[in-house]
């Protein structure tokens, strides 16, 4: 499978999806103008990956900030991950960022995937 490797910009996060190296990570800021369009390739990639996933998938979210339009898409991504066996979400938040911690805990209530919370 192709590797997705998007560099971060002012309004979009860094995204790496690399099945061979077992790296699945979204980090930084997410406030694109059209979040649905921005995240579509990620959702498509996950659809493909879910057909024949690695024995274990650890998906890292290390977001500094995301807007409400992105939050919808994050939930879409989590819902895809929900269907992949042995998936764990590593939800990173800055140690003094209670809002990001709470956002992670809310997402964890909405999907049936185990979350691990970590500070950075």
């Amino acid at each position: 499978m192709e590797v997705i490797n998007l560099e971060s910009t002012e309004d979009t996060p860094k995204i790496i999806l690399d099945r061979n190296n077992g790296i699945f990570e979204i980090s930084g800021r997410s406030l694109p103008e059209d979040s649905a369009e921005y995240y579509q390739p990620i959702l498509d990639w996950l659809d493909e990956y879910s057909k024949n996933p690695n024995p274990e998938t650890v998906f890292i979210f290390k977001l500094e900030y995301f807007n409400t339009a992105s939050s919808k898409l994050i939930l879409d991504i989590l819902s895809k991950l929900e269907t992949i066996e042995n998936t764990t979400i590593s939800w990173f938040y800055h140690e003094d960022d209670e809002d990001m911690e709470e956002a992670g805990s809310e997402f964890s209530d909405l999907v049936e995937v185990p979350f691990e919370f970590k500070t950075y």
């Binding site: 059209d34 649905a36 807007n67 409400t68 339009a69 939050s71 919808k72 939930l75 879409d76 819902s79």
Partner: peptide, 11 residues
Amino acid sequence: QGLSAKGGAGL
């Protein structure tokens, strides 16, 4: 979820 509305769905 599943809606392709532009923007944040009133969030």
